Amino acid sequence: MEIAKNAALVVVDVQKGFEESGFWGPRNNPGADDNIAGLIGVWQETGRPVVFVRHDSVNPASPLRPGYEGNDFKEYVEARRGRGAGKELLVTKTVNSAFYGTPDLGAWLEAEGISQLVVIGIQTNMCVETTARMGGNLGYDVLVPLDATHTFDLEGPFGWRRDADELAQTSAVSLHGGGFARVVTTKEVMAAAA
């Protein structure tokens, strides 16, 4: 695996509001936060660019709504912001894709000459998957270390319910099998980026 010297780490929605299990329900992958922290550390140590993405929910009941403490980044992410040797960007959004945020992520990546993205964060099957899919559609080389993401159980139509692990696996199959991104592990990415 090759990780470009200017590959951007896109850290999606690692916010305090996702700790409110009463709102979201059961989650998977309790090791995701350690893997996210490790990847941010490697990116900052090697001078690669990091994009921090924050979801500003328009739902007044959401734990991610602006003005509520759940909108803030988790402490370990906030403590790392501004600490790296490489470029850094903060993108805020109200929809699933970081490419529809402010400032324009695509324009920034193009201006920086970045063609490879490593997408991590919350939720695997929502904003991580949507950002990875769009990145793939836009021609970026996208990697998703699945164990640096997590999601929650979800109910859909017809009373269908899927647990978080099933949803994460489905996202991985869709992204990888569909050619949108390469689904990999944190260990593989860290070894290649070191």
Rank of each mutant, 00 (worst) to 15 (best):
P26W: 01
Y68K: 05
F73K: 10
L105I: 14
T185I: 11
V14G: 01
A111I: 13
G136W: 04
N35L: 12
A194Y: 04
G38H: 10
V128E: 05
H55Y: 10
I36E: 00
D33L: 04
I40W: 10
P26Y: 00
L138C: 03
D153A: 06
G101L: 06
V118I: 12
L105P: 02
K187Q: 13
E166V: 13
D163A: 08
Q15R: 05
A7P: 04
N125H: 08
L167Q: 05
W160P: 00
E75P: 09
V189H: 01
L146R: 03
K5E: 13
P103L: 11
E20G: 05
T170L: 13
A4V: 06
L146V: 10
R27N: 09
V58H: 05
V12A: 06
D153E: 05
N71W: 03
G106T: 08
R83W: 10
L167W: 01
G70Y: 10
R133C: 09
I122R: 02
C127F: 00
N137M: 12
S21G: 06
D165E: 14
T92V: 13
V183D: 01
I122P: 04
T186Y: 03
E2R: 14
T130I: 13
G121L: 03
V118D: 01
G47K: 04
C127S: 05
E166K: 15
R27H: 09
W160R: 13
R161F: 08
A98F: 00
W108M: 15
W160K: 14
P66C: 06
R161M: 06
Y140K: 04
R83P: 09
G178A: 10
I3S: 02
Y76C: 08
K5Y: 14
T124R: 00
L117R: 00
L89N: 08
A98G: 06
L105R: 08
E75T: 12
Y140Q: 01
T46I: 03
V184T: 13
N71A: 05
F99V: 05
Y76G: 04
D165V: 15
Q44Y: 15
K74H: 13
A8W: 09
Q169M: 12
T102D: 10
I122T: 08
L143Q: 00
N96L: 08
A194W: 07
V53Y: 03
R27Q: 10
V118T: 06
E155S: 11
E2M: 12
R81E: 09
M1I: 15
I122M: 09
P145F: 10
A193C: 09
L143M: 09
D33N: 06
D141S: 10
G135W: 01
R27D: 07
G136M: 04
G82P: 11
N6T: 10
D33M: 07
N28H: 05
L138Q: 02
